[in-house]
């Protein structure tokens, strides 16, 4: 399996604070990689350097072999990167279906068109995606009235609209009830494995981390301190010390 995302020597500091320090890791096709670490470990900084919102001070980010440092988020999206946000970002004044249609219209480069109605384009493809994430029956509802768990699914469907090879999920289950968390991650896992998508996600919920990730990397104070399977991470003494603390088995 080849690396879809390859990060090497990534560093970033804000003022005098070294937020991320020569971090290197890879995510392979069809693999779910969880990035964890205590608050302030540099997860979000790392994440935003991958998606293009931040420019690293040094280091490289390659997606499918192509360098992305210096590119804008929307250009990185065109390289096949889908994103979901910690706090959902959807188009509140549109229906669920229209939200997906927007992503599809953008994917097909049709957003400058003055004709015909947007809601008549890519309808079937949008509904197929909605069916895949299990909210087809909500297609005609406004996003502004949707339950939070369903909004997360809308985001997932939008992120899948451009057939991504890499999916970036920032705290995918934040703000959800425990039962919904498991269901959403199970669904995401199923979809990415059947399509061979690589996933990088950050997460606070340890059940979601160890229950769904193929591999886990741990950041602490901007540095990568461990990498391995769930079991290896759980057994790693350094991780237990800085992250899991005295709680022992998580």
């Amino acid at each position: 399996m080849s690396a879809v995302l390859a990060i090497s020597g990534l560093s970033k500091s804000f003022g005098g604070v070294q937020a991320v320090q020569s971090v290197s890791f890879e995510v392979r096709e069809g693999e779910l990689l969880a990035m964890i670490g205590p608050n302030g470990a540099g997860k979000t900084t790392c994440f935003n350097m991958v998606n293009g919102q931040l420019t690293p001070d040094s280091g490289t980010v390659r997606i499918g072999g192509a360098e992305t440092v210096g590119r804008k988020p929307r250009e990185i999206w065109r390289m096949g990167v889908g994103r979901t946000f910690q706090i959902t970002a959807t188009f509140a004044s549109m229906t669920v279906r229209e939200n997906i249609q927007m992503a599809l219209l953008s994917h097909h480069g049709q957003l400058s068109r003055l004709w015909p109605r947007a809601s008549s384009l890519h309808r079937a493809a949008a509904e197929e995606l909605l069916a895949r994430v299990g909210i087809l029956e909500q297609a005609d509802r406004a996003c502004s009235v949707l339950a939070y768990g369903d909004l997360k699914r809308v985001e997932l469907a939008m992120a899948l609209a451009n057939d991504p090879r890499l999916l970036l999920m920032d705290e995918p289950t934040a703000g959800m009830a425990p039962k919904e968390r498991i269901a959403l991650m199970a669904l995401a896992g199923e979809i990415v494995r059947e399509r061979g998508i690589a996933v990088l996600y950050t997460e606070h919920d340890m059940d979601v981390v160890f229950g769904h990730a193929d591999r886990v990397i741990v950041l602490n104070r901007g540095e990568l301190i461990a990498s391995g399977t769930g079991d290896q991470i759980r057994a790693n003494p350094e991780v237990r010390q800085v992250y899991l603390g005295s709680r022992g088995e998580a």
């Binding site: 998606n51 804008k72 988020p73 929307r74 250009e75 999206w77 065109r78 889908g82 994103r83 946000f85 970002a89 959807t90 188009f91 509140a92 004044s93 549109m94 229209e98 249609q101 927007m102 992503a103 219209l105 953008s106 994917h107 957003l111 400058s112 947007a118 939008m158 992120a159 609209a161 451009n162």
Partner: peptide, 18 residues
């Protein structure tokens, strides 16, 4: 629709290549 998308969520626009 792209205009309304920009009004609703610039962040999401960025994430879907608009």
């Amino acid at each position: 629709y792209a205009l309304r998308a920009g009004r609703d969520s610039p962040l999401r626009c960025d994430a879907i290549g608009i």
